[in-house]
C-alpha cells in the first residue's frame, strides 16, 4: 500500500502500516528502522520514548527544496536530557539559490563544508528508531525526510508523529476553512512555535535553529500534556 493511500485515511492504522513496511522494505538501514517493535497505540504518552525532530530547510516545498540542518532531542514526557541531543548541518542536493540564501540565512560556505545527508542517516534513523517522533508542523518534517530518503536509499519512510502544532490547532483552530487555509499555504501565525510556547509561559528561545527548535518543541509537548491531556493519555489520541 502506498503512502498516499494511507494519508487519505483520517486516522492511519500506524502499527499495521509499520509492520507491513518492515516486511517489504529492502534497504538495510530502513529494514533496521522498521524492525523495531511497533509502538502500541494504547501506550500512555508518559511511558513512550520520544524524540523531538526539527529540520531547517531551504524552502517549504519538499520537491524543490532540501534539508540543511537537523536537530534531534530524545526525551521522555517527564524529562528532556540535553546530553543526548544531536545537531547536524548537511549539504542539500538541490543547491541553494541566492534567493533562498537571503530568505533562510544559510550560506553557501557553511553548507559546502557539510557532509551529505546520506553520511548522517545512520545516526539520524538510529535515533528515530523505536521512538515516537515529535515535530511542530508535520507537513514539513515528514515529507522532507521521506523524500530525502527516497532520493538516497531508493525507498522512503514515514512514521507516526505527534505534531505539537496540530495539538494546538485542535484547541484553537477547529473551523474547517481555517484548517484548509493552513493546509494550502504557510502555517497561520498564532499556532506557530513561538506563540504557542507563550501561551504556556515557556521562555523565549532564539528561533530558527534546528536544535533549539527541537528542544522548544519537546518543552511545548510537556506543557500541552500537562494542561490538556495526561501522562496516561494513549498515544493514539495524540499521534497523526
Amino acid at each position: 500500500m502506498r503512502w498516499s493511500t494511507w494519508k487519505s485515511r483520517k486516522r492511519p492504522d500506524w502499527p499495521e502500516y509499520m509492520s507491513e513496511r518492515a516486511r517489504r522494505v529492502k534497504h538495510p538501514l530502513l529494514r533496521d528502522f522498521f524492525s523495531a517493535a511497533p509502538l502500541d497505540p494504547e501506550t500512555p504518552v508518559g511511558e513512550v520514548p520520544m524524540v523531538a525532530l526539527d529540520l531547517e530547510t531551504t524552502g517549504l516545498d519538499a520537491t524543490r527544496h532540501d534539508i540543511v540542518s537537523i536537530g534531534l532531542v530524545p526525551f521522555r514526557l517527564e524529562r528532556i536530557p540535553m546530553r543526548e541531543s544531536r545537531y547536524w548541518v548537511v549539504s542539500p542536493r538541490r543547491k541553494l539559490s541566492n534567493k533562498s540564501v537571503t530568505f533562510h540565512h544559510i550560506t553557501h560556505s557553511e553548507v559546502a563544508q557539510a557532509p551529505d545527508l546520506s553520511d548522517v542517516l545512520d545516526d539520524v534513523m538510529g535515533m528515530l528508531k523505536g521512538r515516537l517522533v515529535v515535530v511542530h508542523y508535520r507537513h514539513i518534517e515528514r515529507p522532507f525526510l521521506d523524500l530525502a530518503l527516497r532520493e538516497r536509499l531508493g525507498e522512503g519512510a514515514v512514521f507516526p508523529v505527534i505534531d505539537t502544532m496540530g495539538l494546538e490547532a485542535r484547541l484553537h483552530r477547529r473551523r474547517r476553512w481555517v484548517w484548509l487555509r493552513r493546509m494550502a499555504g504557510r502555517p497561520p501565525a498564532s499556532i506557530r512555535l513561538f506563540e504557542s510556547r507563550q501561551r504556556y509561559n515557556l521562555p523565549i528561545y532564539q528561533g530558527h535553529h534546528a536544535l533549539g527548535d527541537a528542544l522548544a518543541t519537546a518543552e511545548l509537548l510537556q506543557a500541552q500534556v500537562a494542561f490538556h491531556h495526561s501522562p496516561d493519555t494513549p498515544i493514539r489520541r495524540l499521534w497523526s
Binding site: 528532556i80 515557556l202 500537562a226
Partner: peptide, 8 residues
C-alpha cells in the same frame, strides 16, 4: 548536561 522539565 541540563535536563529539562515543565511544571504547570
Amino acid at each position: 548536561e541540563v535536563e529539562i522539565q515543565y511544571f504547570p
